[in-house]
């Protein structure tokens, strides 16, 4: 498989720092701000954002992990059930501004599912969205508030985000999918 690198580790690092500033700026501070990563790669990115904010704002934001498996709208289209990763929200989301964090924004269905899942835990004051890559093709009226990089792609391409905590390195590549079959199962 031949991949085209669209973000290096360094670019990812810078994007995280920039987004961390944007989040604070948009919220005008850190009070009532929480970060919720979407399983799986959204979770380490959320942790990095929190770490960056801690460094420049000296504020420790709560970080949670959200599993959206049960809220997907495509369960019956999958050949296999996804393995559930688990949700861990060690705080009450009611009244907070939740920044949902994911690696890639694609069809928007994951984000839709994430918002549904989040609502089960309480009533946030606002929900914002931060993604490392926005690759276009959103099928729902959803847009990201904070984007690491906008990457126009075709549907036949595969955006592959690698995060050190999970994959051993930081990188974002685009692969030309071998089979051009549309991927019903994709929600990212």
């Amino acid at each position: 498989m031949s991949g085209r690198r669209i973000m290096t580790a360094e670019e990812i690092r810078r994007a995280v720092i920039r987004i961390s500033h944007e989040i604070v700026e948009k919220h005008a501070g850190t009070d009532g701000l929480v970060l919720v990563g979407i399983q799986r790669r959204g979770v380490p990115i959320a942790r990095r954002l929190a770490e960056a904010i801690r460094e420049h704002e000296a504020a420790a934001l709560p970080v949670g992990a959200l599993d959206i498996t049960f809220y997907r709208d495509d369960l019956s289209m999958l050949a296999q059930q996804p393995v559930v990763k688990g949700t861990d929200l060690p705080f009450d989301v009611t009244g907070t501004t939740v920044v949902l964090v994911d690696d890639v924004l694609y069809t928007g269905r994951t984000i839709r599912a994430a918002m549904d899942a989040l609502m089960e835990y309480g009533r946030p004051r606002a929900i914002r969205l931060a993604v490392l890559v926005d690759r276009g093709h959103c099928e729902l009226p959803i847009r990201a508030d904070h984007v690491g990089k906008n990457v126009p792609t075709s549907r036949e391409e595969l955006v592959r985000v690698r995060i050190e905590e999970i994959d051993g390195e930081d990188a974002v590549d685009i692969d030309r999918a071998v089979a051009a079959e549309p991927v019903a199962a994709r929600t990212t």
């Binding site: 050949a79 990763k85 861990d88 595969l158 051993g168 089979a179 199962a185 994709r186 990212t188």
Partner: peptide, 26 residues
């Protein structure tokens, strides 16, 4: 390499690194 398999990475189960909150409740 098959995107139908690769797309939702949750399908692949746990990756090589331990997921810090994967075991929530588990």
């Amino acid at each position: 390499t098959d995107p139908a398999l690769a797309a939702p990475d949750e399908l692949l189960g746990a990756g090589p690194a331990a997921d810090p909150v994967a075991a929530a409740g588990g």
